[in-house]
Amino acid sequence: MSTSPPATELTSATSLQRVVDAQPAWPADLDDPLVIAKLTDELRDQLQRQSAQLAAIRSRALHEPLKTRSRSEVGRLLGISRQAVTKAIKVPPMQGAQR
């Protein structure tokens, strides 16, 4: 019977750093590397969905100030270029509630 902490413990930054620092060996007190690999795939997929959602929200939020301000002015207020504002507002809206 294993006394390893559950794979979900790997979600903490400390645990992730332990895996990186332990290379090339695998930390003995962590779960099976295949379990961890599956977990990291699931976390990556979740991060990709969240990233798309955040981009859509940012795009929608930027459209409001652009009704009364130029892209250059909005960019200056946010500390980004006019081109970055243009790129951000071109993100398509999210279709439905994606989880």
Rank of each mutant, 00 (worst) to 15 (best):
S15N: 11
A97K: 14
Q17K: 13
L10N: 01
P5S: 08
D32M: 03
R18V: 00
L78T: 11
A52K: 09
P24F: 09
S81W: 08
A37E: 13
Q48E: 14
L77P: 00
V19F: 07
V85P: 12
S4L: 04
K87H: 11
E73C: 03
Q95S: 15
R99Q: 14
H63R: 15
L30N: 03
L10E: 02
K90G: 13
R82S: 15
I36V: 15
D29P: 01
R18A: 00
W26R: 07
L43W: 08
V19E: 06
K90D: 14
A37P: 02
R60V: 03
M1P: 12
A13D: 13
L78W: 12
M94G: 03
R49C: 00
P33F: 01
E9Y: 02
H63Q: 15
V74C: 00
T8K: 13
K87T: 15
A7Y: 03
I36F: 06
R76V: 08
R18G: 01
I57S: 04
Q83L: 08
K38R: 14
E42D: 12
Q17Y: 08
S2M: 10
S72W: 01
E73L: 09
Q95K: 14
I57K: 02
P33A: 00
P5E: 12
D31F: 01
A61P: 03
E64L: 10
A13I: 07
Q98V: 02
D45L: 12
E73T: 13
L43Y: 06
R49H: 00
V74S: 01
D32V: 02
T14H: 08
T40Q: 13
Q46M: 05
H63F: 06
I57V: 08
R76F: 11
R76I: 04
D45S: 13
V35P: 01
Q95R: 15
I57N: 04
W26Y: 11
L30A: 02
L54V: 10
V19N: 05
L54I: 10
A22C: 13
P5T: 09
K67E: 14
L34Y: 09
T11M: 12
L77D: 03
K90M: 12
P92Y: 09
R44M: 06
Q48Y: 05
R60C: 14
R44A: 14
E73R: 12
S72P: 00
A56V: 00
T14Y: 10
W26K: 05
L43M: 14
E64C: 04
R58S: 01
M94D: 04
V20E: 11
R82W: 03
L62F: 09
P93Q: 09
R49Q: 03
P6T: 06
Q50F: 08
Q98H: 06
Q23T: 07
S81I: 10
V74P: 00
V20A: 10
T14N: 07
V85L: 09
P93H: 07
L54P: 01
D21C: 01
V20Q: 05
T14V: 13
P24A: 04
Q50W: 05
